Amino acid sequence: MDFNFSEEQLQLQDAITRFVQGDYDFEHHRKVVASADGWDRKAWQGLADLGVLAMIVPEDQGGLGYGPIETQLALQATGPALLAEPLLTSGVIATALVRDFAQEPVRSELLGELATGGRILVLAHQEAKARGDVAVVDTTAKADGDGVVLNGAKAVIYHAAAADELLVSAREGDGVSLFRVAKDTAGLTLRSYATIDGQRAAEVLLSNVKVPASARLGAAGQALPAIERALDIGLAAVTAEAVGIMEATVNATGEYLKTRQQFGQPIGRFQALQHRMADMLLHLEQARSMSYLAAMDCQNPDDDARRKTLSAAKVTIGQACRFIAQQSVQLHGGMGMTDELNVSHWFKRLLAIELSFGDTDLHLERFAKLSQRAALEAAAA
């Protein structure tokens, strides 16, 4: 299989890499996450100017018309910078959801604003009891005169406080619908907090939140499959982010072993530590391969095949995240846990990625069930 990228794809990745290395270095990251907002609007506009936010917006809507491969290259390039901006949540997941599910003229309006960074949308779908199950939606939507009333709660919604609007999923009749809800809507409460990886998330509480019927995005009761497909695109993208961070972590650890002296020589000469570095590289390359596979299959119309591939990728990536992060900290010694060293920040982000979009155990179980179902269907055929 050809894993070579086109010249245009490599130029895109190179431009993003130069941007984050020049304008979003480690010290800038620390200042951003310590700020009141927890993200940098100037950096967000810089991403828009580079075309990063327009990557998956169709060309007829003012975008670049790219797909998952370009998204993978972009997230891999931004990964080591630990961007606190809503690139994954708004620039990938929400944009894909609007692109594939919204109806005109709302679709064109939102895509144009998303591409230029003028509007930030965040999907508020996850609920506390769901534990990674996309189909669990207890938030309700009930008709009330000329509008709809929403009641419920969403849990750990990344970048909710930075969003102009939330895309709130709610059970309406026998299906699930999606509604645009502005942050200042009466009855909507955000409890924002910092997460372990330096990002910002929020609990979203909806108490008799009334929105007009026109706030419904797409067809009534038909949103769940579109939400799952958008989250699968996001899952593939976050695997690429993880690969970028793991690669930076492995490189930083290798450099440290070359310079740290003990018993009169660099500790990288000790065979036991060389074996551990080799194991880290093995996990990295396995994760890279599965990230490629996730990118190529994340838009597969065959639901079971897509889910099986993405679960396999998430298991491999999750195991690699934990192994590489833990080994890196151990090989750095006590300083590996200090706030002044980027390795400790990469460690925390990798831990958060392993737990996001369903943790390793959940995806291992899903992969096993899908494999068993496929085997039974093949035997019955």
Rank of each mutant, 00 (worst) to 15 (best):
I245S: 01
E203Y: 14
A94R: 05
D40S: 09
P301C: 13
R18G: 11
Q327D: 10
R366G: 04
T316K: 13
V57T: 15
L111V: 06
H29K: 10
V33I: 15
A74M: 15
I245R: 01
Q76E: 14
A115R: 05
T259Q: 14
I157H: 00
W44A: 05
N251T: 09
G132S: 00
G117I: 06
D232S: 11
R107A: 01
D100W: 14
A220S: 15
L166V: 07
Q326E: 11
I93N: 07
E59F: 05
G79C: 09
P86E: 01
F179E: 04
I157K: 00
G244F: 03
N342F: 10
A102H: 10
G333H: 09
A312Q: 05
L217G: 04
S291V: 00
A84M: 01
S311D: 10
T139I: 11
R191Q: 15
A213I: 12
E255T: 08
D60C: 13
T195A: 10
G22S: 15
L114Q: 11
E365G: 00
L224T: 00
R171T: 09
A161W: 01
D174C: 12
T249R: 06
Q274L: 01
T253F: 09
N4E: 15
L82V: 02
T249G: 08
W346K: 01
A194I: 07
L167T: 01
A84L: 01
A320V: 05
A278I: 10
G46F: 07
E172H: 09
T17R: 13
K258P: 00
A237L: 04
F19D: 02
